[in-house]
Design a protein around this nucleic acid. Structure first.
Lengths: 194, 194
DNA sequence: CTTCAAGCGGAATCACGATTCCGATTCTAG
DNA sequence: CTAGAATCGGAATCGTGATTCCGCTTGAAG
């Protein structure tokens, strides 16, 4: 059993790291995290072998929250709404919590055991919601998961920069969602850009 | 007048830096750039006071290319096509040339004299093309420049990661462009995501 | 063909953070 | 209350790159 003070410190470090990470992104220094936690760097390292490990722990917790939200939506929401809600939720998260995107990054490559599992589940949830939305006619049937992932990635990264005020992001997302909806009436009016 | 060999070396450094930057992003090392240019680090520093200065030079050249393209489009293309073409062009550039996005970043904050000028011009070009596209009915009248900048930023960043194959990006962009077009027939069919 | 300032190469220096170490401090079992 | 293990704190160490320095080379003016 972990010594009570050790447990307390671990929590303090985790909390401080989350705050600092949100404020300064991955470039945050370990010293700073330790200072904010009211603890020595040594203590930080006792609990997390490396900076990367610390970040991984935080990100894992966040993704877990999102996956929990996915579970909730799976049962509580109508399929045509679940997709947009989940998408929005992820982007909103990115807007607040920097570096989350790094986790979503390549929702399917890399290694790292546990995280890979989360990526798979995240991707699965998105695939499921997308399918549901398409079946219920809320999303055009011709967009595939990879395209959605690219859009989600882009939206998250843009949101993460924090350079756009909330309303702007909302409007941008609205445009994007409109693009995902099936064309209103006549089917012939498409085209790309080029 | 600069000694001929110096001019030659400057060009070699610039070329090598561009390649290395595209391959490895901003994390590329000065040593590597010097090596590829077939030159010593000292020489790199003789021409560019700092790594940042070197990158700035490259980015400036690129943005200049884009601005030139904007001039071309301003006269050669119909207003309803110019917007989409320019948008696509920028994203395509980001897909190839990493770190370009850093330049587009905040198309309006920061300092750095010359670059600020470029930012202003870039933003002006986008504003102009957007206005033209909206007048000609190619883009919904209710999207504003900030929203466009956010979308462009997101698209560029996603493209820059290089994790999405060309076709996927094309499809994602197509969705986004569809969202920018005015609703087909009945005007009442909107909604956000929430 | 000299001369010598502009340029060159690349080893040495610096700066900055992550990570390690270890004597000093707590916990908590007994 | 006391010993011993588990934790601490934070100074010292390491590694990694950017940047500086300087003796050597080379272009080109006379």
């Amino acid at each position: 059993m972990m010594r009570s003070d050790a447990a307390r410190n671990r929590a303090k470090v985790l909390a401080a790291a989350e705050v600092v990470l949100d404020e300064q992104g991955p470039a945050a220094r370990m010293d700073e995290i330790a200072r904010r936690a009211g603890v020595g760097v040594g203590t930080v390292y006792r609990h997390f072998a490396t900076k990367e490990a610390l970040y991984a722990a935080i990100v894992a917790a966040r993704v877990d929250l999102l996956l929990r939200e996915a579970d909730r939506l799976r049962t509580a929401a109508e399929p045509q709404a679940a997709f947009f809600t989940f998408f929005t939720r992820i982007v909103a998260d990115a807007a607040t919590k920097k570096a989350l995107t790094d986790a979503l990054r390549d929702a399917g490559v890399d290694v790292k055991a546990e995280q890979t599992d989360q990526r798979v589940r995240m991707r699965a949830a998105l695939a499921e919601f997308l399918r549901g939305a398409q079946r219920s006619g809320a999303v055009r049937p011709d967009v595939d998961l990879p395209a959605i992932l690219a859009l989600l990635r882009g939206a998250s990264m843009a949101a993460e920069t924090g350079e756009y005020s909330g309303p702007v992001l909302d409007r941008a997302l609205a445009v994007l969602f409109d693009g995902l909806r099936p064309p209103a009436y006549p089917p012939g009016s498409h085209r790309s850009g080029q």
